[in-house]
Simulated assay, not measured.
Amino acid sequence: MINSLENNDKKNTCSFINKLIRRYNMPYILMKVNYPGTNKSNEITNSIIENLDDIMSDIFSPFIVFKSLRITEEGPVVTFVLDKDPMEIKKTTVEIEDKHILGDCVNIDVYDKDMNKITRQLMGYPPRKCFICDGTAKNCMKKNAHGNDRIIQYVVGKYREYMENFHGKKV
């Protein structure tokens, strides 16, 4: 049942994106939390996405044409449509993924107005590293190399570190 719900959510997301592309004909961003399992929308994932949504909104504010936060079976998903060069957008999102304390916890996918994904490799960046073993994230995800509990533990730990260091709050 969960797989069919996730597939429906992916179809709904694709339909939503298709409507945005037809309406705006501009690049867009999809941001999701890297959180395994069936409970992808919870206090931690929602807070992570809200904090990074605020940062992304600040960075891209002059270029935002449309923004949406949706809670789906895939977890919280933020969509931005930006009036900005997709290559420049990708440079910025790679910096967020690589340098922000919560960057490991999210995937920020950038697409051009023709729905072509702007990848790290296309931009000349190395593949994204796994935050647990330093292998490539893509290979570890395919192999389910670290198990859900270890990944959840890492994400929760990063969130706690962020909240304590930047907001002075114990979680």
Rank of each mutant, 00 (worst) to 15 (best):
E88Q: 14
F63S: 14
S68Y: 03
E95V: 02
D83T: 14
E97M: 01
I89R: 02
H100K: 14
S61I: 09
E74C: 15
G103R: 00
F80H: 07
L102H: 08
D85V: 11
T93A: 02
K99L: 15
P86N: 12
T93V: 13
F80K: 03
P76A: 14
E74F: 14
V65I: 14
L69T: 06
D85E: 13
I96A: 13
K84Q: 05
K84Y: 11
I64E: 07
R70D: 10
D98F: 13
K90L: 09
K91G: 13
D98V: 02
E88A: 04
V65G: 00
L102M: 01
V78D: 11
K90D: 06
V81G: 04
V81Q: 07
F63H: 06
T72G: 01
P76V: 09
G75C: 08
T72I: 02
K90I: 05
E97S: 01
P86T: 06
T93R: 02
I96G: 10
R70E: 10
L82K: 07
I71A: 12
R70L: 12
I96R: 07
I96T: 03
M87T: 03
T93I: 08
F80Q: 03
E97K: 04
F66W: 12
G103Y: 08
V65Y: 06
L69D: 06
V78K: 12
L102S: 02
D98Y: 04
V81L: 00
D83E: 10
I71R: 03
F63N: 11
T92C: 13
E73N: 15
K99H: 07
D83Q: 08
D83P: 00
